[in-house]
Design a protein around this nucleic acid. Structure first.
Lengths: 345, 345
DNA sequence: AACAGGATGTATAGCGTTTCAATATTAGTA
DNA sequence: TACTAATATTGAAACGCTATACATCCTGTT
């Protein structure tokens, strides 16, 4: 079935392309009768003008940027988008979002899509499993397409706005140690995520600077999905004597922490009296939990803001700018899901 | 500063446009030396190939649809997007999202953007304040651009997938009445939202079919933002004697309900012992709350799925399809934030 | 009946790529 | 060296629309 063009409509209506174009663009230079007739023909042929061709003539006016996140339903990412949106709006840009769902192919698809649709630039939370493929990023560089990464990607020089996960976790663990916790475990994330490894490292690293010694069984593989985390947590405790329970759990992220707390409630283990729970990310919904979560705050809004700033600066600069590499500070936020076991503040 | 085209690059590099194009598209038909030279020139000129023109030639291959929601950070909407995404993925389509932030202009902008970028179709959660402007929707119709609305919009015939808010609220209120609640109030949403009015109506309507009588002061204007709702809730109760407290609050949505519960906790009013709280929407985070929220489940995933289904069917149909109008069933879900006061189940 | 002048409509030239057949260059071989 | 078979490169023709300048049709006036 062949494509219908404005020409077909013109021919069929017995007018010229120009007239059809005028109708499409709601010019008032066309007589109602003609107009209606053309409209009917358009309907009849189910003619859909190709946007591409329309833009060609005018050049591409609209100012919009894209952002590719990993999970649209995780508030951490949507908060970053909000930050980017606020800055962008201020500069007259709009933002469109897509989710790679932690899938490399999709990330590639979307980065190509955006660059090819004349979206002015893109912010990417890159999927970096194992040997990351990065051709698509090289491609963006080649065509001088402005982009900003929200995580370092080995092998490529680019604009990056990120946080120091290792340092952040280390700090949290050292806090627990300093407040008298001796049996601390880390509930690790999905093995596919690069964050998982980083966070394990940070956790482990904390012990090297403390009197406590690290054991491999302090790392428990849990995952990040809610249901999965809930189930694994229950299992974990079911297999343990009460005397072997940890005094504190450092979670992979806040969503997991929420699942853990739900499981603990089910098991009638009190937070923070029996066990302290520490999250990571500081998402909105963990903050408003009845037992507000002690967690590591990543400045989500600021991450988005800065990324958008760098991106738009690049878009608007006529010449190539040097890459920026920004590492934002995290903040350890003590709330009510953790407990101090000894005097030390 | 004039636009740089492939021609400029060609001229400057002393080759033809075709060769430059080959470099851009990573064809391996270009001698490395030539290739490198061209790459340098591209960098020097900061040449960014215009996607528009590329698509022109190729036709528009990619299968992607758009969705315009009102709030990217509200899980209700992202769940809808997930539903649409699942269906679309299955059909080989990708989804890009943007948020109108309840702003009419943005909705217009994005609908125009998508249609003009040859995104194949769009799902819109329309902003329908007061006298809704709907020209942009008419425009979509005119150019036979496939779209699906997630809410009825007066004055336009279109594909719609939605739920019956009025009925849903009515049902919830009748439940409360039947379980012995006599002092029920509705915490209404922002006056700008069309949902606010609907929900008030549903609330009111429930009384007409019960022995209780409706009073205007049963409607309390609270809003939907978390902080705002929290503050207003505190104020509401501060001004009241304990004996005048309602026995149940029907909230505008789940986020508001969460804010209300936080305020009640602050005021040391127990949920559900002292007061029952009923939400609306059934967002994920209210379900996993330690006091799981009694609420009205809107089948978010299904809404997205159905909308995507209708959209894609329209996209792929060579001829115009008649409009669909789908009203999905809501379900009243009793959990732990509400209490039965008398025997009746 | 002729004509000004606005309302309608037409024809054509781009817009910036990609494509592809034709041509040029190079490497490899006898 | 001459010739063939690859390998590189060229340049003109699309792609489907919009804009622009120009032609035509009316209308009502003189």
């Amino acid at each position: 079935m062949k494509k219908i063009t404005i020409e077909d409509v013109a021919k069929r209506s017995g007018v010229s392309k120009g007239t059809v174009s005028a109708v499409i663009n709601a010019k008032n230079t066309v007589k109602p009768a003609t107009r209606n007739h053309i409209l009917e023909v358009m309907k009849e042929l189910n003619f859909r003008p190709k946007g591409v061709a329309r833009n060609l003539k005018n050049g591409n006016q609209d100012k919009t940027i894209g952002i590719i996140i990993k999970d649209l339903t995780y508030p951490f990412y949507t908060a970053i988008v909000s930050g980017a949106r606020d800055y962008a709006t201020n500069k007259g840009y709009s933002v469109i979002v897509s989710s790679s769902d932690d899938n490399h192919e999709r990330e590639k698809y979307f980065s190509h899509l955006f660059s090819t649709k004349d979206i002015k630039g893109v912010i990417i939370a890159p999927v970096v499993e194992g040997a990351a493929e990065i051709e698509h990023l090289f491609r963006l560089k080649m065509i001088n397409y402005p982009f900003v990464l929200l995580e370092d990607v080995k092998g490529i020089q680019a604009n990056v706005v990120t946080i120091d996960n290792i340092k952040a976790i280390k700090r949290a663990v050292k806090y627990l140690i300093s407040t008298g916790h001796t049996k601390i475990v880390h509930f690790a994330g999905p093995s596919s995520s690069s964050h998982t490894q980083e966070r394990i490292e940070g956790f482990r690293y904390a012990f090297s600077e403390s009197p406590l010694v690290f054991h491999n069984d302090m790392i428990v593989s849990i995952g990040s999905h809610f249901d999965e985390s809930y189930v694994k947590t229950i299992e974990y405790f079911k297999e343990k004597q009460r005397s072997d329970y940890p005094t504190a759990i450092v979670c992979f992220n806040d969503l997991q922490a929420l699942a853990v707390m739900m499981a603990l409630k089910e098991l009638q283990i009190c937070v923070p009296e029996d066990i302290s729970v520490v999250g990571n990310d500081d998402i909105f919904y963990a903050k408003i939990y009845p037992i507000p979560l002690t967690t590591i705050n990543a400045p989500q809004h600021e991450i988005g803001r800065r990324a958008a700033e760098i991106l738009i600066t690049n878009i608007e600069s006529p010449s190539l700018l040097p890459n920026e590499h920004v590492i934002l500070e995290t903040e350890f936020v003590v709330r009510e899901s953790s407990r101090v076991l000894i005097g030390k503040k």
